[in-house]
């Protein structure tokens, strides 16, 4: 657990999601100032660090795990973070990215890139990470410390969790809901 009073390293990670959860973080409004006082944002889609750093205290992870790249990124996030929070429904349940799960990847690709293409039909082979057979929630790959559902999660809930973590307390979640 994070010791009270210490300035912590905060990271946010964006896997397969719409970035709505990150928008919700930005929606903390003035709350974000109280967080900034206590935390350094060391990695995020909002900052331009390339490599996920070592020794992160809290990582908020948005999105489902959909590709091999997501999976390996999540592994290193887990290995380098003390507290990992699944942020939003995609991270917690799979949510919208998981809506493809009922169909084989091949069939989806066929529909999207070949049947659905106006020009140059063909499944892209390079520059895109290979998809996993299914998009799945974070906890099926790594240990998740806290879950913060919602699509997107309520900024107040995010703030409450962050405040608790920064204060060295186990977060007590306000009533939250899926969706």
């Amino acid at each position: 657990m994070i010791a009270a009073g210490e300035k912590i390293k905060l990271a946010t990670v964006w896997l397969d999601g719409c970035s709505g959860c990150h928008m919700s973080i930005l929606d903390l409004d003035e709350g974000i100032l109280s967080v900034a006082e206590r935390a350094d944002l060391v990695y995020s889609p909002l900052v331009d660090t390339v490599e996920f750093p070592e020794g992160v205290d809290v990582a908020l992870v948005e999105g489902a795990v959909s590709s091999l790249e997501d999976a390996s990124k999540l592994q290193s996030v887990r290995a380098r973070s003390r507290v990992l929070v699944a942020l939003g429904d995609c991270a917690v349940t799979g949510n919208v990215p998981a809506m493809r799960n009922r169909l084989p990847v091949k069939q989806i690709m066929q529909r999207l890139y070949i049947e659905g293409a106006d020009v140059n039909p063909g499944v892209p082979a390079s520059g895109v990470p290979p998809l996993l057979a299914q998009a799945r929630p974070l906890h099926e790959f790594v240990k998740v410390d806290f879950y913060l559902p919602g699509c997107p999660p309520d900024p107040k809930a995010i703030l409450s969790v962050l405040t608790d973590v920064l204060a060295g307390r186990a977060p007590k979640l306000p009533a939250v809901k899926f969706g």
Binding site: G94, A98, N101, P137, E140, P149, L173
Partner: peptide, 13 residues
């Protein structure tokens, strides 16, 4: 207070 599900999803078609 169900904030996550510990069992794998079935994703039926």
């Amino acid at each position: 207070g169900v904030t996550s599900v510990r069992f794998p999803y079935r994703y039926p078609n």
